[in-house]
């Protein structure tokens, strides 16, 4: 069973008073395995938020199917095992942190005795235990985001969907959210993380899917997607045609920057020493320095999205 599965999911928004229909999601096939942290990436308008809205049952698909923990998306049984932190929210800020979590626990049908204990645990986890009696309106934006995270996990769900959970947070707040995500992962939960902060995704996620124009264009583990590709900057006494020729035999791509520097891209980290060998032994060049940089998620994201013609 998948934590989330969509089959040819399509959502078209038709304006009420005519106008051009907007295709938000176009034939989306997505599989999220149980357990671990899954990142949902994509440029603005890629269909990430609409996909999430379909999964939590707020939006009905135009066609195709979506399943959450084996239940049809939006079914009460699925919602019972699902926690959600929306990107844009307005909490009932006249409630105290404790009252707010009590209300959400009751809505999630948590047993009152268990709920009392759970409120303590969750407030401790998000670092708001000392502010339990404070009204939410007195909270900073970061604290509101953390109480939002607390309501998402108050009922100990199997699947947690976090829509831009770190957007309003400072570095310390981000670290706290990362710790909560790590804790959930250790508990065997599945976390779906929708974020524009690619470094955050790279630090937290095991698997990612990149969406563009309403479709999944890449999906897999970070190891599978970031295929060890490295970009190496070489400093030489002189860049000669012989050096360039030798590098081209080893590298996937070679760019001459100036008469002293060349940038070479190799398919695997293991090929990096071969570049030095090519320069020094094959071409007789004088190598002054070398700096290798591993491909990041950001590089992959930009490459994928630009490759799709965006």
């Amino acid at each position: 069973m998948w934590a989330i599965e969509t089959r040819a999911l399509r959502k078209v928004f038709r304006p009420l008073l005519g106008g051009t229909p907007i295709v938000a999601v176009e034939s989306l096939d997505l599989q999220v395995p149980l357990g671990g942290v899954f990142g949902l990436l994509g440029p603005n308008g890629a269909g990430k938020t609409t996909t999430i809205q379909v999964l939590i049952g707020n939006v009905r698909p135009t066609s195709g199917e979506a399943f959450v923990l084996g239940y049809r998306a939006g079914a009460v049984q699925a919602k019972r095992k699902l926690g959600f932190l929306p990107e844009k929210f307005q909490f009932h800020d006249f409630l105290t942190a404790e009252e707010f979590l009590w209300m959400h626990g009751q809505l999630a049908k948590v047993n009152p005795k268990r709920l009392r204990k759970r409120i303590d645990e969750v407030l401790e986890l998000v670092g708001l235990a000392e502010r339990r009696k404070s009204r939410i309106r007195e909270f900073s934006k970061g604290m509101q985001q953390r109480i939002g995270l607390a309501q998402a996990i108050i009922h100990d769900p199997e699947l947690v969907i976090l829509d831009e959970p770190t957007s309003a947070l400072d570095p310390l707040g981000r670290r706290r959210v990362r710790e909560v995500i790590q804790y959930l992962k250790e508990q065997g939960k599945t976390v779906i993380l929708n974020s524009h902060l690619l470094s955050e995704v790279e630090m937290s996620c095991d698997r990612v899917a990149i969406l563009n124009k309403g479709r999944v264009v890449k999906q897999g583990t970070l190891e599978e997607l970031l295929v060890n590709r490295s970009v190496v900057t070489l400093e030489l006494k002189q860049v000669t045609p012989a050096v360039l020729e030798a590098l081209q035999r080893v590298a996937v791509k070679v760019d001459r920057i100036d008469e002293h520097r060349v940038v070479a891209e190799v398919a695997s980290e293991e090929d990096v020493p071969l570049l030095a060998r090519a320069v020094v032994l094959d071409a007789g060049g004088a190598l002054m320095g070398m700096q290798a940089k591993r491909e990041t998620l950001e590089d992959l994201f930009i490459q994928t999205v630009e490759g799709e013609g965006k």
């Binding site: 939590i56 049952g57 707020n58 009460v76 049984q77 919602k79 019972r80 699902l82 959600f84 932190l85 929306p86 844009k88 929210f89 307005q90 909490f91 009932h92 959400h104 809505l107 999630a108 049908k109 939002g148 309501q151 998402a152």
Partner: peptide, 14 residues
């Protein structure tokens, strides 16, 4: 529109 229901509707309620 004000965002109050975005955290309530995903709860297991009809």
């Amino acid at each position: 529109e004000r965002g109050y229901l975005s955290a309530i509707l995903p709860r297991p309620i009809h």
